[in-house]
Structures are given as structure tokens and as C-alpha cells.
Design a protein around this nucleic acid. Structure first.
Lengths: 366, 366
DNA sequence: CTGAAAGCGCTTACAG
DNA sequence: CTGAAAGCGCTTACAG
């Protein structure tokens, strides 16, 4: 039997509960929300209030509570979608870490999508309008003075920022050593002509991987060949286009021994092109990625890649952000470093094997 | 130069803006939030208010606005994570559709993760505490009377519900015809012994596909063989286990002509097992999936599968949910059907070809 | 130790 | 047509 209230079908309020239990709204608040004052209410009254709350299906209104406490218990995530308006697997991995840790801290998670960091950065302050307590930026790309975009009253954490941001905790990974290590793995397997389909040129992450690639070649006496480096723009579509373009320009010449893709998304694009063209990975050539997203585990063959602990990084981002929110609220918290760096590791799967001799040649596209 | 306010570093309020412009807070509200009353404020005053708002970086507080308007402008999504706490490809596709359309309607999106529908359904009312205006359930599984979990003051939309829910808009796809069509495709290619690695038994989606599988066999004069149907539990791991088990029990007997996997994730698991055992798809046997997630394009060979328009379904879910929210708020809206069904289509890729004669036999596991 | 009042920042219904 | 007041549903600081 539904409770009798003025506005039927509207959620019960603290006043409704108090009325039903014969006490004031604050008494109900004290009991239901565990304020320190709750100890001084008699067991009997307490039981009546609890019973009334259950009977009326009372849930504290989040907006009212947020207004009074200046705390929404919601964390924001801002990330980029591709041209098709889609989040990619890199986002998904980080998101999985963020949402699980947020839930563990009774925080909900709100996602904001941007199409382009340069064009859409001005939207960030609009997100900080009280609906979130702090914001995690996923792989933000900023140039020049960024501080004007970041409201000082909201704490920020940046995962994989293009450049280290001021007044923001930066969460990064050991990309250069990771990239070096996977290129070394290819060289150790006998590969010398290694095509690097890079991430978006100009971004820190791409340039660090390119640097490592060239360093590994040099360390093993292999001359860097600019013809073996093309821009795959950190996306599946970019990987497709880059490799298809390269193959079209090299008809009749030998295939590369191996491809080092700047991330898994690029590797996926390369794999699609290679499969369609009739090449078999890893028999005809080896292929490696970077990130170890879900996509790397659901290809066939599964990809050898550099595992960045994206999930752990996302979880850590939540941890740090909550510290900063507490700090902002006036609590004293442990010192938070400006930059936190995670180790990476090469994950060996099925997409690498020794090269065939002689190399297959590039066939004309169908 | 920062504005002079009592609490420095706190966001400006309407009162701050009014004070700076020499008007009341409501006048500022009228101008800044486009209320109908805004027309009767002089151009001069309006300009002063606008200027003050910009100078103070005024942003209306979302919690306060939500409390006054009973509208948070936020949509919720509830979905399941796997045992590792991760959302899968299926979720990502639907989510991409939802968030893009939500953003197009100036709504933000909040994600709630559940581990198990049966165990966690009681959490749903807790999400409906004013922080969201409506909730989209992704592939919910309910048994018995569900209405007790769904607060009547919040509108719901269910995508791919296990069973049609009352008081909820159900968004579905033509799964039965889609499954029928892909099995027919296999039969047309010459396959007769088709192993169906099913989705989780008991779920509506699985049973509809099983029904279509058996119907297609019957329509083409092929007797249904219960030995050619195993449970793949809608996951890659389930697909692996189911096929490995089947092969182990059929050593020395002929391979199936083809495998119809209940979804792409299952197909991936089957492909891994087949590849490890030394079989080649599609030469030794054909393999098809269901869903057309990213995974179907990144296998080698690429999978023939049934495309469900997950993104479009997600977009539609937002559309319908917004209608229901408006309706709840008292607006008259067009009639919303209780169930909306999307067409599906078979996508032909490289994982199907005519069967070899004679069939390869199942070899003992390595 | 307790309870009634003020306040969070907005919007809306309502007197003048 | 306009402006001051009341109210959204909570919490917290403060008199008694």
C-alpha cells in the first residue's frame, strides 16, 4: 500500500519520513545519514525512523545533498572520440579502471566526450559546474598556456598528458623503455627491416616511441630508413590508411620483416589490411602493437604488444583525484607527487615469429 | 585580475553576478538563462549582466538548478561488467551510440556497473536518487516480477532485455530472423553438420538464436542433432571451453562442417582453439558469429557475422528515454511503443567457404 | 546535549 | 509588466 503523500509518485523526502515517524526532518537526517549527532536519539525513535524510511523507500536526494555539502560524489572523465564519434579501446581500459575504483569509493562516474582537444578545451569549465567534484583528463593534448582552461576550484588529474601540466597530477607510463624493448624483441627474432607505423606525429607519446624505435635500431647496428616510418595517427583508420598507402607505393618490393605499430588500434588497422591482402601474420611478417587493450587480446592471432597498466593507471587516477578533492575541502592529505609513472612490460603472444627467407614481395592491390 | 568575492576561489553565483552588475540575482538569472521574462530587461542592463558574468566566469551551479527544476540533465546507463570488472565490446558499441546522442541533446551520461543482474538489481533504486533523470538498462536479465526494482518516479529504457519488461521501453533486434539467415547461408554453402556454440542458456537472446538454428535445419531437411549444440555462455572464455570440450569428446570423428557461434566473443574463443589445434578457418571448417562488434573485423580471417545496429540502438534508447522524461514532467509527447525492433543483416566476410570432402577428422589434443 | 533556523544557489509562482 | 518572496531537499552552525 503506497504511502499517503501530497504529490503521489514523487520520491519521499526527509520531511515525509519525519512526519511518518512523528519527528522532525533533522532527526530523520541524523539517523539516516549517520551524522555524529545520531547517537543521542533513543533506540525507539531510531527504529521508528528507520522503519518509516524503508516503508516510504526513502532515498536522499543527490542534488539537494550536493547543494548543501558542496560535494556531488561524482567524478568526471573527459576523453576524445574519433571521427565516427566512438571511444576506442584505450579509453575502455582506462575507463574500466576508473569506474571500478570510483564505485569502490561510492562515487559515480560521468563521461564527457570531446572531438578535438584544441577545439573543445573551452568546454571543460562548463563541465565543472557542480555536477562533478573533480575531472580526469584522458590523454589530453594542450599547447601553450593551459591554465586558463582549468578552473581553479576543481581538481584535475591527467592520464597520459601530451605535456606535463601545471597544477594537475600527471599519470604517465614508461613508454620509451617499453617501445625500446619491443623493438629489441623483433630484432632478436631476426627482423631488420621494421616498419614503424607511428602514433600521431607531434604528440609526446608518439615521439617517445619513435625515439625508442630509432635508438633500438642504432644500438643494433641497423641504419634508420625514413621510408620505413609512416604516420598511423593512433587509430585503426589511420593504421589502415598508412599501411595501405605504404604497400601501394612498394609493389614488387619485399615486404617489411615486421611492423611496429604505435598502438594496438593502429596494429588492428594493419592486421585488417594485411589479412584482406592475403598476407598471414606472423608467417609472412610479424606485427606488434602498444597498450595491451582488449583489442590486442581479441585478434587472431593475438598481438604481442607493450602492456601499459591502463586499468591500474585509471584506478590510481581516482585515488589521487579523491585526495585532491579532500585537500580542496580543507582536509590535510599526504603530499601528492606532480607526476606518477607506471612501469610497462612486453607481452609475448602469437604475432611474432622468425622471418621467412626470402621475404615475400608486395603484390599489387586487388 | 580576479574578482573580489567573500570566498575567493569559489565559483561565482548568480548573486555575485547581480551584485557586480548592480541588479538582483533574478534579473541576472532571467538574462543568463533565457527565461521568457528576459525580454523585458533593457539592452543596457542586459549588457552589464552579460559582461559581469563573463568577467566572473559565471557557470550556473548544476546541483542548485537540478534541485529547483527537478531535472539533472543527466542520463544513466546500467550495464554488466565481466568477472575481471571490465566492460566488453558489446557495451562499448552501445555506449558510443548513447553518449553521442546524449551529448547532442546537452545531456551528460553517468555509468553504473553491475556484476550480476540477479545479485545487484537491488542497487538500481539507489541510482535513481535525483542524480539522473532516466536510466538505460543494457542487456538486463530479470526474472519474475521486476517492477519492485524499478522506481516509478524514474523512466527506464531496456536495450536487449532478457524478457519484455512492463512499464519500460524495450529496444530489441530481429535476432531470430538474423540467426536463421546466417544458418541458411552456411547451408547454402554446402554445410550440413553445423555445430552451434550457443549463448548463455535461458537468456532470451540465446534461445531465439537456438530456435532459429533448429528452424533453419528443419526447413532444409537436416535433422537436429543435440550432440551438435553446446553452451558457450556469450563469452570468449565460454567459447574456448565449449569447443575444446566438444573436440576432446570427438577424437577421431569428423570435424563439423561449420560452427555457428552465439556471438562474436564466442566465435573468437572457437577460432583460438581451432588455430591452436592446427585447423584452418575457413579451409577446414567455416565459422560465423553474431553482433558484428570490432572483434569480428580483427580476426584472421575476418568473421562472417550478423550485424546488430548497436550504435543506432543506443542512440534510439536516448531518444525514447528523453521522450519519457518529458512525458513524466507533464509534457504531452507522441505515443511511445512498448517495444522497438531493429533489423539485422548478415555481413559476409572471409570465414565461410564450401566444405572439404572428405571432412578432416578430429585429432587428439596436443 | 538538543532542537529550530539559516543557508546551499538556483527557479518559479505570485502579489503588487 | 515587474520585483521580492518562497521553495526545491538536504546539512550545519548556533542559540538555548
Amino acid at each position: 500500500m503506497p504511502a499517503c503523500r501530497k504529490r503521489p509518485d514523487h520520491p519521499a523526502t526527509l520531511a515525509d519520513v519525519g512526519r511518518a515517524a512523528g519527528v522532525s526532518a533533522m532527526a530523520a537526517s541524523a539517523v539516516l545519514n549517520g551524522a555524529r549527532t545520531s547517537t543521542r536519539i533513543s533506540q525507539d525513535t531510531r527504529a521508528r525512523i528507520l522503519e518509516a524510511a524503508i516503508r516510504l523507500s526513502y532515498r536522499p536526494n543527490a542534488a539537494a545533498r550536493a547543494l548543501a555539502q558542496r560535494r556531488m560524489n561524482t567524478l568526471g572523465i573527459a576523453a576524445i572520440v574519433n571521427d565516427g564519434g566512438e571511444f576506442d579501446h584505450y579509453f575502455l581500459e582506462a575507463f574500466n579502471g576508473i569506474i571500478s575504483n570510483a564505485a569502490a569509493h561510492s562515487q559515480t562516474t560521468t563521461v564527457f566526450s570531446l572531438h578535438d582537444w584544441h577545439r573543445d578545451a573551452h568546454l571543460l569549465p562548463g563541465f565543472c559546474d557542480g555536477r562533478i567534484d573533480g575531472l580526469i583528463l584522458i590523454a589530453p593534448v594542450f599547447d601553450g598556456d593551459t591554465s586558463r582552461f582549468l578552473p581553479s576550484h576543481t581538481p584535475f588529474v591527467a592520464m597520459h598528458p601530451n605535456r606535463t601540466l601545471r597544477d594537475v597530477v600527471n599519470i604517465e607510463a614508461d613508454e620509451e623503455p617499453g617501445a625500446y624493448e619491443i623493438v629489441r624483441t623483433l630484432i632478436a627474432a631476426g627482423h631488420r627491416r621494421i616498419l614503424h607505423v607511428t602514433g600521431t606525429r607531434g604528440l609526446g607519446g608518439s615521439e617517445r616511441r619513435i625515439h625508442a624505435y630509432q635508438r633500438a635500431l642504432a644500438d643494433h647496428g641497423i641504419a634508420f630508413d625514413p621510408d620505413l616510418q609512416v604516420d598511423g595517427r593512433f587509430s585503426t583508420e589511420g593504421g589502415r590508411a598508412a599501411l595501405a598507402g605504404w604497400l601501394a607505393q612498394h609493389t614488387g618490393q619485399p615486404l617489411p620483416d615486421a611492423i611496429f605499430a604505435g598502438n594496438d588500434a593502429i596494429a588492428i588497422g594493419c592486421l585488417e589490411i594485411l589479412t584482406k591482402a592475403g598476407y598471414h601474420v606472423p608467417r609472412d611478417l610479424s606485427l606488434v602493437g602498444f597498450d595491451d587493450t582488449l583489442a590486442a587480446r581479441t585478434t587472431s592471432p593475438q598481438l604481442t604488444t607493450v602492456r601499459q597498466p591502463l586499468r591500474a593507471m585509471g584506478m590510481r587516477a581516482v585515488e589521487v583525484l579523491l585526495e585532491r578533492i579532500r585537500e580542496r575541502a580543507g582536509a590535510t592529505v599526504p603530499e601528492i607527487p606532480a607526476t606518477i609513472t607506471f612501469p610497462v612490460e612486453v607481452v609475448h603472444r602469437a604475432s611474432v615469429q622468425k622471418p621467412l627467407r626470402p621475404r615475400p614481395r608486395v603484390v599489387a592491390p586487388a
